[in-house]
Design a protein around this nucleic acid. Sequence first.
DNA 1: TCAATATTAGACTGATCAGTACAAAATTGG
DNA 2: CCAATTTTGTACTGATCAGTCTAATATTGA
Lengths: 209, 209
Amino acid sequence: MTNWYKITSFTLLMKEMAGRPKIFDEEAALNKAAILFWKKGYEATSTEDLIQAMGVQRGSFYNSFGSKKELFINAINSHETNLFSRFKKQLKASNRPIQVIKDAFLSLADCPKEEHLMGCFAGNTIAEFSGIDEELAENAGKHLKALEEIFFKQIKSSQQTGELKSKIEARLLGKYLLNLWNGINITRRVYPDKNILKSLIEFQLEAIG
Amino acid sequence: MTNWYKITSFTLLMKEMAGRPKIFDEEAALNKAAILFWKKGYEATSTEDLIQAMGVQRGSFYNSFGSKKELFINAINSHETNLFSRFKKQLKASNRPIQVIKDAFLSLADCPKEEHLMGCFAGNTIAEFSGIDEELAENAGKHLKALEEIFFKQIKSSQQTGELKSKIEARLLGKYLLNLWNGINITRRVYPDKNILKSLIEFQLEAIG
DNA sequence: TCAATATTAGACTGATCAGTACAAAATTGG
DNA sequence: CCAATTTTGTACTGATCAGTCTAATATTGA
């Protein structure tokens, strides 16, 4: 990411650099990489795969993204940060945020099969790297903890407003939902079936009232 | 597996084959391979890694185990079959089998960190291969479905004997426990902490009464 | 127009990958 | 002892891996 300045508020203050201009959109290429890493995992994705999918030449790939590992970290961080930030916005905008959480889980059931088979990017990364590469595993773990934190804060606040009747500790319910998330993202690959998943998720959501 | 005859009931009837004898225990070597594949996954485990860990020469490796992929399938199948067969024996031997199931989950919490980080062999394989290699993914899926079947049968039978008070459909509870298994085997890598896992599992087990 | 700068395009590199070839060694039964 | 058979031990192979090198190209500001 050599042209970070393009997306900061300082953009207008920066001088344009000399040099041949990039012919690809760095953010779009990063998203392509994220989807490929999400689908196939880190080891099974070759730099050749990435270059093809991102529509970038080999030279530009290393020039813009540093290395396969750097790209992976940027890809997962950007992907998960965007996902959770959209989720937080939905919660903020709703007057029934607990229902938004429930709908988020229920929407997992209603995916095309190909999406079921991808599971959760952060969960996949934990599975691939815990005990192998602590940098990548801990980074992915942070995203899952961030998701738990979203659940926790919303549960706590909804217990205060009364939207959520359950008196069970918000910290415990947050971990319960994280564990539900982790479980469904494996189970949906064994049963990529809308009805099975829907009834399982509905049952599990009864726990939060 | 060229000397399958050694472990069948026909052993005594078979003539010994001519030829230089194996200097390694095939079953022990298979277990070593299983543990390595479990720890590192398929792609990240090289044949060199396997040969080292199994204590076998390259020639013997291919002579006895065919290929990396064949070895992987045999390793996961042997590992999961043994694990679930021991579990079934425990259930059969107990007069409180539901408590055996609960203890199995609770014992997940009380593992050394290294074991937490390994998760579930079948779950890891699903995560690595669903959408990529359907043969390996479906094979792993069969093991998870076999585990669900153990839960289901025991729940159904314990609902009849009265050990289990819950009236919730046994099929749904079976899937609930499978999903708990899948979830904990990701979550324990984010929180490889006995107390956190214990309270989470205890809470989730309340659902089955 | 020209120097400075950055990206493109693709050939190239050394390491590692899974798997093979094959001669030497160790066994069996005749 | 010998023929048949099987495993061992190791060198080897072609493919693929992540990453490098660099000349050509396209831009900016002077």
